[in-house]
Amino acid sequence: MRDYKWLHEYCLNRFGSVAALEARLPTPLTADELRQIGDDRYLSLIALRVFRAGLKHSLVDAKWPAFEQAFFGFDPHKVVLMGAEHLERLMQDARLIRHLGKLKSVPRNAQFVLDVARERGSFGALIADWPCDDIVGLWKYLAKHGAQLGGLSAPRLLRMIGKDTFVPSDDMVAALKAQGIVDKAPTSLKELAAVQNAFNQWQAQSGRPLCQLSVMLAHTVNH
């Protein structure tokens, strides 16, 4: 794999200046900022990610105020009490996206949020304290304990939240293949560990957050 110096120079050549490059890069939230986000907001973001999966994001986002109302502002203590009959009534609400599997995931994820909060004090504590040099471990934790958070949903959720993570988008996977780090989209523990190790090396060389390195790497793919 190439080092960070090559990655930086490639992106500078592509965008023409440091300012143009920096303008394209995201900034993650700090651990303190992540802790200050309420459990209801985390549940809302989890649900938003689940409903966005496979659907046009703008369609989902336009309906989200109705979801906030239907799910009691995503207060996990209230949402967890929503039973099958309540969800069936929501399936008749034309303001919502009436996908029963996704609707069922919301109270399940409310229970997940409450379980984490009971153990750690808040869901934000889990997100804030998880070390970024094992961010794939957090993906696996979310996929195992949450509902419908497998595949790319966990890293995309973390990006939405503001937690520092890389996201194995199609462009990033193509770049990883070009670097000889993987030969396909990483799914196995071995492949994910190889990608994590590569990002840890680039981070050590650059001091940049994972999300910035992820975007920079994706831009090394020619279109």
Score class of each variant (00 low, 15 high):
Arg2Trp: 11
Trp6Met: 10
Glu9His: 08
Tyr10Lys: 05
Cys11Gly: 04
Asn13Cys: 13
Asn13Ser: 15
Ala19Tyr: 14
Leu21Tyr: 01
Arg24Leu: 13
Leu34Met: 06
Gly38Leu: 13
Asp39Thr: 00
Leu45Thr: 13
Arg52Leu: 00
Asp61Val: 13
Pro65Val: 00
Pro65Met: 01
Phe67Cys: 00
Glu68Ala: 14
Glu68Arg: 04
Phe71Trp: 10
Phe72Trp: 11
Phe74Tyr: 03
Asp75Lys: 07
Asp75Asn: 05
Lys78Pro: 08
Val79Phe: 08
Leu81Thr: 13
Leu81Gln: 12
Leu81Ser: 05
Gly83Tyr: 02
Arg89Val: 02
Gln92Tyr: 00
Ile97Met: 08
Leu100Glu: 14
Leu103Thr: 03
Ala110Trp: 03
Ala110Glu: 01
Phe112Pro: 02
Val113His: 00
Leu114His: 09
Leu114Met: 06
Asp115Phe: 10
Asp115Pro: 02
Asp115Tyr: 06
Gly121Ile: 08
Ala125Glu: 08
Ile127Tyr: 05
Ile127Gln: 02
Trp130Gln: 01
Pro131Leu: 09
Ile135Cys: 03
Trp139Tyr: 09
Lys140Arg: 15
Lys140Gly: 12
Tyr141Val: 11
Lys144Cys: 13
Gln148Gly: 00
Leu149Ile: 08
Leu149Thr: 05
Leu149Arg: 07
Leu152Thr: 14
Arg156Glu: 14
Leu157Gln: 03
Met160Phe: 00
Asp164Gly: 02
Asp164Glu: 10
Phe166Glu: 05
Asp170Arg: 15
Ala175Val: 02
Lys177Asn: 13
Lys177Cys: 14
Ala178Gln: 14
Val182Asn: 02
Ser188His: 02
Leu189Tyr: 15
Lys190Phe: 02
Gln203Arg: 15
Ala204Leu: 00
Gly207His: 02
Pro209Ile: 00
Gln212Ile: 06
Asn222Trp: 13
Asn222His: 15
